[in-house]
Computed example of a mutant assay.
Amino acid sequence: MMTTAELAQVLFTTALQPSDALSPYAIRAAVDERLCACGGDPARCAGQVAQEAGDHPEAYARRMRWALGAVAGAYQLAAA
């Protein structure tokens, strides 16, 4: 089982945007798809997050806050 932080890092690397109207299902599907693209290794996604943080520090915190909130909601509903 992945932590909320790991799930958020994976979501961070997807093309989804905070302005998109996203269902919990769409968020979980995007995380699953991206994790598969990273070979099932959340550390590979984390490397991409680090690269983005270095390249775009002004947008990093805002996007990570969104990703954390989005996965917390999407996976809380899935567990209920």
Rank of each mutant, 00 (worst) to 15 (best):
E33C: 10
V31I: 15
C36N: 12
R34G: 05
E52S: 15
A50H: 07
G40K: 00
I27D: 03
E33V: 05
G40C: 03
G54V: 06
I27R: 06
D32P: 15
R28T: 06
V31L: 09
A37W: 07
Y25S: 14
C45V: 11
R44H: 06
G39K: 02
V49H: 06
R28K: 05
P57E: 02
D32Q: 10
G47F: 01
Q48P: 00
A46W: 00
A30L: 10
P57M: 01
Q48G: 10
H56C: 15
A30H: 01
G47C: 00
D55K: 07
E33Y: 05
G47R: 13
Y25A: 15
R34A: 13
H56I: 13
I27S: 11
A26D: 12
G40N: 04
P57G: 07
H56L: 14
E58W: 03
V49E: 02
R28C: 09
A53S: 05
V49D: 03
A30M: 08
V31Y: 03
V49A: 01
P42D: 07
H56Q: 13
A29P: 00
V49F: 10
C38G: 02
L35H: 08
S23A: 12
C36H: 12
D55N: 01
P24L: 14
A26N: 11
E58L: 12
R34M: 12
R34S: 12
G47M: 04
L35R: 00
G54W: 01
G54Y: 00
Q48F: 00
I27F: 06
A26P: 01
E58S: 07
R44M: 15
G40V: 03
G40M: 01
